[in-house]
Structures are given as C-alpha cells and as structure tokens.
C-alpha cells in the first residue's frame, strides 16, 4: 500500500514512541506490535522496520511474526469494524447467514474493506458470548441474537448517524 509522506512520518514517529517503552529483549516484540496496532489501526511496513531495528532482528522475522498471528493487520481497517462470530455455537445458529447479510449490505466479501474505508468485514472465532448466538461485533460492541433484519437495521442506523453528522457540519 502507498502511504503519503505525512502518513509515513506518523507511522515512524508513533512506532518509535511505543518501542522506546521496551528494552531490546525479544519478549517485548509482540506487546509492542500490539500497541502499534492499537494506535495506528494496523502494522505498516515502516513500523516493522523500526521494530526490527529496535529488537535487533531481521525485518523478515518481524514480518514472519506479524503474518503468523491473525490479530495483526497489514492494511488499515475501515472506520467501523464489523466482525461476525464464526464459532461453533454461532455457526450452528446461522452465523454464515449473518455473514452473508453483512456481505450483501456492505457489498464486500469477508476480509475486505468498503472502497470508502467506512466499514471492514471480518470473521472471529468465538467471542465467548455463545449463549447469545449468533453474535456480531460492530467495533467493540457485541450484538447478540442477530438476524438478517437486525443487520439491515445496524447498517441503516450507521448510515443515518453519518448523514446527520455530515448535515450537521458547518459549510
């Protein structure tokens, strides 16, 4: 992905700031990457290079770690992250139907981000609310007992909020 000069600078600065909190012992690598992702939303190549320098290891090894773990993302997420649970209980109660509903309203496939970067759609394996299956998360909020119509409703209310924000904005 191409970053603007400004984005690149931010990525490097923020990464350095976070890495400075860790001594160079390698046990700090994953916690540091997690913090970088918390701040930037993903782990850009710049951050991996900085981390490699900080922990004194080849950049390819940092890349190996980042790609091994599902949690790390190499591209920026949408402003809203939709995650659909695909754990056992949710699957048996129609989790795939919920996923397809999201794919339909967002017009993207699982793993993708909408072109306007408003939403990204992902799967998770069980968030531990199996009694409320099927479950979907919009950002950090867990929504239980999902249905296709609830998906439409959630999407609609986000659109509405966005529109209001736009209209409320001064010219």
């Amino acid at each position: 992905m191409q970053l603007t000069e400004e984005e690149r600078k931010e990525a490097v600065e923020k990464s350095r700031e976070i890495l400075a909190r860790y001594d160079g012992s390698r046990g700090g690598l994953i916690p540091a990457l997690q913090q970088i992702q918390d701040v930037l939303g993903y782990v850009p190549a710049e951050a991996m290079r900085e981390a490699a320098g900080h922990f004194g290891m080849p950049a390819v090894d940092v890349y190996g770690v980042v790609t091994f773990y599902n949690q790390f993302r190499l591209t920026p997420p949408g402003r809203h992250q939709v995650k659909v649970c695909m754990g056992t209980a949710c699957h048996m109660k129609g989790g795939n139907i919920i996923m397809e509903s999201w794919e339909r309203v967002l017009k993207v496939k699982v793993g993708e981000t909408t072109p306007d970067r408003e939403f990204s759609l992902e799967r998770v394996a069980c968030v531990g609310c199996c009694t409320m299956a099927p479950v979907a998360l919009v950002n950090e909020t867990v929504h239980g007992k999902m249905t296709p119509t609830k998906v439409d409703g959630l999407y609609f209310s986000h659109q509405l909020a966005n529109q209001q924000k736009k209209e409320g904005m001064p010219e």
Binding site: M86, G87, T88, A89, A125, C126, G128, C130, T131
Partner: peptide, 12 residues
C-alpha cells in the same frame, strides 16, 4: 487462551 470456539468458562 481459551480458543475452543464454543467455550466461555475461562472468560466468565
């Protein structure tokens, strides 16, 4: 780490 997709004892 409770990774079994369908288990939530440890979380609780």
């Amino acid at each position: 780490d409770e990774g079994d997709p369908g288990a939530f004892m440890d979380r609780t």
